[in-house]
């Protein structure tokens, strides 16, 4: 790579895998109490309560969807108003040019369409996807994070990051396996 960016592997974090969500929840709670902040959990199913321990809160998606809906509805109604009253105004069935009741359905559909775009693409973008390869995939345990392992990762940019200490800590919490992960060469 000639970008001049340093792309050699760097420590990404410590990954610990647990057998069930209860152990993971407990580990996350304890890690949070121990002062770790830069961490994330990887699970095959949504685990309720995890985000509370991870101190994660984000309500932007609701607003994105809402704005999508408002945009869609406005565009829909504006389009109907503009085409029917000025761009291509003509009498049809004796109905008024601005036929409010009849312009409702298209406005409604446009609202829903744009709100759904907001919800879907907003979610994908906020999750940082699409990104088919992620550094955390370098962990062996991640192969089962989508199946039956519940994983906690404390990332290297945490101020309290200390590989050894964290590994010990995780083993005490009942982790099945603990490994340190490096980022991928070239990324």
């Amino acid at each position: 790579m000639s970008s001049g960016r340093d792309t050699s592997p760097k420590p990404f974090g410590v990954v610990a895998s647990f057998a069930n969500p209860e152990l993971l929840l407990e580990a996350t709670r304890r890690a949070s109490e121990a002062g770790y902040r830069r961490m994330d959990a990887y699970t095959p199913i949504p685990v309720e309560g995890l985000t509370d321990y991870l101190k994660f809160k984000d309500s932007r998606l609701g607003w994105i969807t809402f704005l999508g809906g408002i945009t869609g509805g406005s565009i829909g109604l504006w389009l109907e108003w503009w085409t029917s009253t000025s761009a291509y105004a003509h009498n049809s069935g004796g109905k008024p040019l601005m036929s409010w009741p009849m312009f409702f359905p298209v406005m409604y559909e446009a609202t829903i369409l744009f709100a759904a775009f907001g919800a879907t693409f907003g979610m994908i973008a906020l999750c940082g996807l699409p990104r088919p390869h992620q550094p955390v995939f370098n962990a062996e345990a991640m192969a089962r994070a989508s199946q039956d392992r519940f994983i906690l990762c404390i990332e290297a940019d945490d101020p309290n990051y200390d590989e050894k200490k964290i590994s010990e800590f995780m083993k005490d919490l009942g982790a099945e396996e603990v490994e340190s992960v490096m980022t991928t060469e070239g990324y």
Binding site: A41, Y42, L50, L54, C127
Partner: peptide, 19 residues
């Protein structure tokens, strides 16, 4: 799309599904 099952991603994912 590179889904990791991250708790943060799940949180948004569930929110998006409900919406």
């Amino acid at each position: 799309l590179g889904w990791t099952g991250s708790a943060k991603a799940w949180h948004r994912y569930m929110h998006a599904s409900i919406m």
